[in-house]
Each structure stands twice: as structure tokens, then as C-alpha cells.
Amino acid sequence: MGWTGGIEELSGLSDDSRRRLEALAPMTVPTDTVLFRPGDAVQGYVIVLSGRIGVYLVGPNGREILLYDVTPGSSCIQSTLGLLGGEDYSAEAVVEADAAVVLLPRATFLEMLDADRAFRNIVFTAFAQRMQSTMQILERVAFQPVDARLAGFLLARADGGEVQATQQDIASAIGSAREVVSRRLDAMKRRGWLTHERGRVTILKPDALRVATND
């Protein structure tokens, strides 16, 4: 058994579907690679085996908002919508951490969707989950204060008490501007909650950040 054996979600596929997938070779995509831009045609369904891909909405002024991350076990709404409805991409996808991906061509995707109930369930379950998480992101951007969004992001991304991200990365993720993030980080630093330097935030008082997420 090849790469499909490591993905629990694919365990219920038919033998024919599994053979189709195994015939596709995983590709390694380095960090900072742009996978698609607004107006590009959707080429296929992407299965992420490792790494992380950020999907951004880019405004006319160049400001970006992170819509969602695509990680192993999750799906890309933009790709699914394009494959089902024939629409081009309306967002930009950038590899945030070296990724291994498999691209399932449009024709094969549609044939498997029609023939294999298990594959159909995988696609639509992942699509529903992604839609729900995207709605939650939009809700936070629309109704949650910047401090609460910033605190939540830092807690969610922290690894060993540290967050490796630039202020622009953080701003895109929480739907704000870099200058605003810089001021909020400085304020949190003065309170003794964290320290920050270029590309890194060190959390000193996670409990204080947790309280801030509810403000």
C-alpha cells in the first residue's frame, strides 16, 4: 500500500478508487510557492499529505486576509467549488510550510465523485467542515475586537510558547493591518504578556491572552 495507507479518511474507498489515487505521485512544494491566483482555472483536487497552505483573499489595495489553512486532512473550498461549478479561483494560495501534495485531475475527481459513495462522503464532509470554519473566521473578523483576535491567533499558533510569524503574517491571519498588529503587540508587551522581535512572538502570560480572547 502506498501513500493512501497513511490517510485514515481514505480507508473506506473502493479498490478502484484507491488504485486511481495510488497512480498519482505526490509532489514536494517548497515554502513560498504560489499554487494559484485569482482568475486561474482550477486544475484538480488537492490532497495535502504534509505541510501547510494558506488561502488568502487579496483586496485591490494589496491587503490580504487569510481565509483558511489547508493542512493534512482538510480541504480547499476554492478548489472544490471550482471543480463542481466551473468557476475560476478568486483567492490566492501560498505554501506556508514545505508541503507534499497530490493533485487529483478534474476528470478523475468527477468520475470518482460519481462512482464511489465513500469518496463523495469524504469530499462533502470536508467541504462542510471547511465552510463552517470559514464562517467562524468571517464572524470573528466582523464582530470580534482586534485584541481578542490577536490573542486567539497567538494561542492557537504557539509552539512551546513561541509563535513564528511576521507581523504581516499575523495581520493577514486576523483580518487587520500590520500597523495595528504592531501597536497591539507593543501594548501587550508593556503589560508583560509577551515579548516580540522580527518574525517571533514569545508568550509570557498565556492566561492573560486567554482572558483577552473573551473581551
Rank of each mutant, 00 (worst) to 15 (best):
L13T: 12
D15A: 14
D16G: 11
S17K: 05
S17Q: 05
A23C: 05
L24T: 05
M27Q: 11
M27D: 13
M27T: 09
T28C: 04
T28Q: 11
V29N: 00
P30H: 00
P30E: 04
T31E: 12
T33M: 05
T33F: 02
V34Y: 04
V34L: 06
P38C: 07
P38T: 07
P38V: 03
G39D: 11
G39L: 06
D40G: 11
A41Y: 09
Q43Y: 06
G44V: 06
I47P: 01
I47V: 14
V48L: 15
V48H: 09
V48M: 14
L49W: 11
L49T: 12
S50M: 10
R52N: 08
I53D: 03
I53T: 09
I53E: 02
V55I: 12
V55Q: 08
Y56F: 15
V58H: 09
V58R: 12
G59Y: 13
G59R: 15
N61P: 00
G62M: 00
G62C: 00
E64D: 02
I65Y: 07
L67W: 00
L67V: 03
D69H: 05
D69C: 03
T71R: 04
G73K: 05
G73A: 04
C76N: 03
C76A: 13
L81K: 15
L81D: 15
G82F: 12
G82R: 11
G82D: 05
L84S: 02
G85A: 09
G86F: 07
D88Y: 04
Y89W: 10
S90D: 08
A91M: 11
E92D: 10
E92W: 05
V94E: 06
E96M: 07
A97W: 09
A99L: 02
A100G: 07
V101D: 04
V102H: 10
L103H: 04
L103C: 05
L103G: 02
L104C: 06
L104D: 01
P105C: 05
P105L: 06
P105Q: 03
R106P: 01
A107C: 04
A107N: 03
A107D: 12
T108V: 09
F109M: 07
E111N: 10
M112E: 00
L113W: 05
L113Y: 07
D116P: 05
R117D: 15
A118V: 10
N121D: 15
N121F: 13
V123P: 12
F124M: 15
T125M: 12
A126R: 15
A126Y: 10
A126T: 14
A126P: 07
F127L: 14
F127S: 08
M131R: 15
